[in-house]
């Protein structure tokens, strides 16, 4: 049996497919670095995933703890030392004040693009529905408690708890 459109029938409007959000997709990002330059990849990707409606969890471990430690999170640094991608002589990076200068420059470049600093970026991620978790072993190593950490960190959990929470997630280690 064939069906022909009734006279005057309207064609189906062409609309972007927002409705087809895959609610089973999850992203887990392990943040293990405490330098300014290595803090941003995880934050940017978490923010992007949340904007696409993907459940996102960040787990802060080892040096990544500096991103959520109230004492350090606003003061992450960038150094040229050991980073050949700056394409500057390595000896230069060791001069007094060079890390402060490089940090200042990177902060300015990031701010000029309208991208928030680390504490504000974490708040944006939480406001977008993201989850922040702190690593139990790192907390023990650094003698830190929940009160030492950024207020939006949900809990200090073990590595196995994190693995359990993020069952089926795509995982990024940074």
């Amino acid at each position: 049996m064939t069906s022909t459109p009734a006279p005057g029938a309207v064609e189906t409007p062409f609309v972007p497919s927002f409705g087809e959000v895959d609610t089973s997709r999850k992203l887990a990002i392990i943040c293990s670095k405490g330098t300014l330059d290595m803090a941003y990849p995880g934050l940017v990707l978490a923010n992007a995933a949340l904007g696409e409606g993907i459940e996102t969890h960040l787990f802060f471990t080892f040096w990544g703890f500096d991103m959520i430690n109230k004492k350090t999170m606003g003061d992450l640094k960038f150094t040229m030392l050991g980073n050949t991608a700056t394409h500057m002589p390595q000896g230069l990076g060791g001069l007094p004040g060079m890390t402060a200068l490089a940090t200042h420059q990177m902060r300015k470049t990031i701010a000029d693009l309208g991208i928030p600093d680390v504490p504000e970026f974490l708040q944006q991620i939480v406001d977008s529905g993201g989850h922040l978790w702190a690593c139990r072993m790192s907390a023990d190593m650094q003698h830190l408690e929940m009160e030492d950490l950024y207020d939006e960190v949900e809990d200090i959990i073990s590595a196995s708890d994190f693995i359990e929470k993020t069952a089926g997630a795509q995982l990024l280690f940074i």
Binding site: P16, F18, V21, G51, E52, G53, D127, S128, G129
Partner: peptide, 10 residues
Amino acid sequence: FELFPQKPAK
């Protein structure tokens, strides 16, 4: 995120 759920920017 409340006004335009899941993919607010788009």
